[in-house]
């Protein structure tokens, strides 16, 4: 039952997705590419490119895209709603308790340890994408290197970098 699978995958991600969209990319990948085999690593990379280029949160864009590709419009709605549901539940059920104890070590310590773990998750997501399909030529290594330097040290806008890389890919296809 595809709707139940979509619900379960994205509900889990909404519940355990600490640290923003990029850490969720890692969680989504585990299920969508490895566990359920809904798409290849390369297709997932394409999807992420589209998610980053369009307005709105990256995780919602990704969930909608995966849901649509598996089960059409209904799938897209199920995936996105399941992703948001844990946030609503947390707000309705536990927010008062958490807020009251927000300076307690029991709240602060898990959050502190979460930061290096999330960093590891994000880096792992990038490493797992480095297969022959995405990183198989000298040109692709050059694009990767330029992207890292431009984005990290010169703060070049990601959308601009995606468009430029697409252009390079297009030109290399003609030549």
């Amino acid at each position: 039952m595809i709707y139940l699978q979509l619900f379960w995958v994205f509900f889990k991600i909404g519940l355990f997705g600490f640290g923003g969209g990029y850490s969720m990319i890692s969680l989504i990948r585990t299920d969508v590419v490895d566990a359920y085999g809904w798409m290849s690593a390369g297709e997932y990379a394409d999807l992420l490119a589209i998610s980053q280029m369009t307005p709105g949160p990256i995780s919602i864009n990704t969930a909608t895209f995966v849901g649509y590709s598996q089960a059409g419009l209904a799938g897209a709605i199920v995936a996105t709603a399941s992703l948001c549901l844990p946030s609503v539940m947390i707000m309705a059920l536990v927010i008062r308790v958490l807020f009251k104890h927000r300076t307690s070590p029991y709240v602060l310590e898990p959050m502190r340890i979460m930061v290096p773990v999330v960093a590891g998750l994000i880096i792992a997501a990038a490493v797992l994408m480095c297969d022959a399909d995405s990183l198989g030529s000298v040109l692709s290594f050059a694009i990767l290197a330029v992207t890292i330097v431009a984005n990290m040290f010169f703060k070049v806008n990601p959308i601009l970098l995606i468009i430029a890389s697409g252009l390079v890919g297009y030109i290399s296809g003609i030549v």
Binding site: A45, A125, L144, L161, I162, G166, Y170, S172
Partner: peptide, 17 residues
Amino acid sequence: VFRGIRPCVIGLILVPG
């Protein structure tokens, strides 16, 4: 086009990590 974009996406995920 997407063959060019894929390595760029890897970089864009690596940097926030």
